[in-house]
Design a protein around this nucleic acid. Sequence first.
DNA 1: CGACAACCTGACCAGGCGGTAAAACCACGT
DNA 2: ACGTGGTTTTACCGCCTGGTCAGGTTGTCG
Lengths: 220, 220
Amino acid sequence: MNSSGGSRSSADTREAIMEATFRALSKHGYNDLRMRDIGEEFEMSRTLIHYHYDGKHDLISAFLEYVIEQYEGSVEVDEDADPLTELDARIDQCLFGPEFDTDFGHWERMKVYHELFSQAQHNERHREVFNNHYVTIRDSITQVLERGIDEGVFRPVDAEETAQFVTDIIHAARARRISLGHDEAPEQARRGIHEYILSSLLKPEFVVSSQRTGRNRSGE
Amino acid sequence: MNSSGGSRSSADTREAIMEATFRALSKHGYNDLRMRDIGEEFEMSRTLIHYHYDGKHDLISAFLEYVIEQYEGSVEVDEDADPLTELDARIDQCLFGPEFDTDFGHWERMKVYHELFSQAQHNERHREVFNNHYVTIRDSITQVLERGIDEGVFRPVDAEETAQFVTDIIHAARARRISLGHDEAPEQARRGIHEYILSSLLKPEFVVSSQRTGRNRSGE
DNA sequence: CGACAACCTGACCAGGCGGTAAAACCACGT
DNA sequence: ACGTGGTTTTACCGCCTGGTCAGGTTGTCG
């Protein structure tokens, strides 16, 4: 058996193919990605790919899930911190990646991610996968916001809508950095979020009480 | 002669090719765009394209400029309005297109635009064109902001940085609508911009004294 | 050992791709 | 009428692509 042993197994090979696909995709881009390119990045024979995956389409679909799995697995945040700190950490992680100085591979991953993302409009299955991922990211921010609101640290905004707003900004900054080469985009986005959103959330003199005392509870 | 007359000329044909390219690109997407697809959308023979353009690459480059020219030509804003109104109008135009109810072709154009945009990372020339366009859009917003600041309507923020922030948000909303099919994204972005940015700009009591929004209390 | 299944390879292919060659068309000036 | 130069079409091609297939290698169990 090779379920956990070290011998060359199907699972190992499939993982190697995924990494080869990543390298090829990173080099050539989605449009110019040939099966042969993946084969060249792959230590074994090109046709072996066809043994493990049913054609190019199946391979790309599997790769998409592989990439997103990696992305979500890399998120590490101290959830015991106060809401503002956690929110800040999540935003930074989205903008700059999990490691802060050594990992330049982060942007290679992002490059591939965004390339697949922009192709999602042409593939219903891919769109669904990205939608789920998008929701995951947004919800993680929504939850921090809600916690902050509950604890009275943030003013009572619509958490989900605000989280969506922040998520959009993060995506835009990444896209601009990748497509246009604006290396400063993530840093700019960070400043904007702080100046316009976080500062607004924290406004202490805005705290409840004043305008809408009767609105909340009475309902109908 | 046909320099300004109505007879079929080279310029007419080239324009027809551009429109055929648009249709083909809209149908098949950039990845699956074959010269033959353009030929099918084109009223004349497929190979005629090769007479007017030096290969696929040249054609796409010309098409990119064609699309951006159209985009910039479609911007219509009353520059005599007060800064807030003009800013609002510009944002709406970016988010919803020049016409507000009849034009569903707007999103077809945007779809193609964003597809080319995401491909810009692989082509230096294209990246440059998009960069210029990006700057054009951002500057138009920067100028309104500066005017508003001069007139005392807006608080004195860094106009360019804020304009960049707004531009990013617009792009993100469009990308999300197109790639993920979120039809509500532009409307959400609009609300977010109003709630967090415009309202902040208008704050009359913008207290300059404590620009720090106070990260807890440790600060610097 | 021998057999069976899983894994891997090199040689090969049919189809479709972008692109070209040369002939036909057409509106002119002479 | 006829040639001329820009335009358009028809017929065609070489190349490269994703994919297949028969056969080899490895590992495992009766």
